[in-house]
Simulated scan of single mutants.
Amino acid sequence: MPDDADRFFVITGGPGSGKSTLLSALEADGQLCLPEAGRAIIQAQVAIGGAALPWSDRSAFAELMLSWEIRSYQTAQATSRIAFFDRGVPDVAGYLRLTGLPVPAHVEKAIEIYRYNRSVFIAPPWPEIFTQDRERKQDFDEAVRTYEALAATYSACGYGLIELPRVSVKERAAFVLRTVAAPA
C-alpha cells in the first residue's frame, strides 16, 4: 500500500444518505475534503449539452467519474494532510456493476493503483433524509441498490467498511474524526 493511502479516507454510500453534508461539515472544521464527481459532472454536462449523463450515456459518465477520482487523488497527493474523499475510484466499478455494464480492465487497474485507507466509511440508506433533485433522479430503492453494490465492491477490493451512524451531522463528523484518530 502506498504511504498516501493511510491518510486517504473515502466516504461512500448510496445517493441521499448524507455523505456530501458530512463532508461539508468536515471541511468547515478545517479538514481537506475532495468533492463528489457525479453531481459536478451532471451539472457540467447539462450546461454544455453533453451526453455523458447517467440517463444518456452511462459508460461515458463512468469514464468522466474515473478521471475525476484520479485527479482528486492526485490533488490530495500534493499535500501531506489527511484527506476525505466524497467517493473513490472503486465507486466507478460499483456504478458500472449497478447499471449492468462491464468493468473495463483499466478501471480495475485504477482500483489497484489508487488505494485509500483500508477503512472506508459507508453511509447507509436513510429514508428520513433521502430527497431527489435535479441531479439526483434515483428513487430510494435505487439508493439502496447503490449502497449494496458499493458495499460489495469495496469489500471485494479489500477494504473494511465502517457504517456511519444515523445521527446528526455534528455527531457523524465527530464519529469520523474519532475513528480516524484512533490507533489502528
Rank of each mutant, 00 (worst) to 15 (best):
P2S: 09
D3A: 14
D4K: 05
A5W: 11
R7N: 11
I11V: 15
G14N: 07
G14Y: 11
G16K: 10
S17L: 06
T21N: 02
T21H: 03
L22Y: 12
S24K: 11
L26I: 13
A28K: 11
D29H: 10
D29V: 05
G30I: 13
G30K: 02
L32G: 09
L32S: 09
A37W: 07
I41G: 01
I41Q: 01
A44C: 04
Q45T: 04
G49P: 15
G50Y: 02
W55L: 01
R58K: 09
R58D: 11
A60D: 01
L66D: 05
W68M: 02
W68F: 11
Y73D: 08
Y73K: 01
A76Y: 13
A78L: 12
A78W: 09
P90Q: 01
A93R: 01
Y95H: 04
Y95G: 02
T99A: 00
T99I: 05
L101E: 09
V103T: 08
K109I: 15
I113P: 07
Y114M: 05
Y116A: 08
N117D: 10
T131K: 07
Q132L: 07
D133H: 09
D139C: 07
F140E: 04
E142Q: 13
E142T: 14
E142V: 12
T153S: 06
T153W: 03
Y154S: 03
A156P: 12
Y159L: 05
I162S: 00
E163W: 03
L164E: 00
P165V: 00
V167Q: 02
V169H: 05
A173D: 12
F175E: 05
R178F: 11
R178I: 13
T179I: 08
A182S: 08
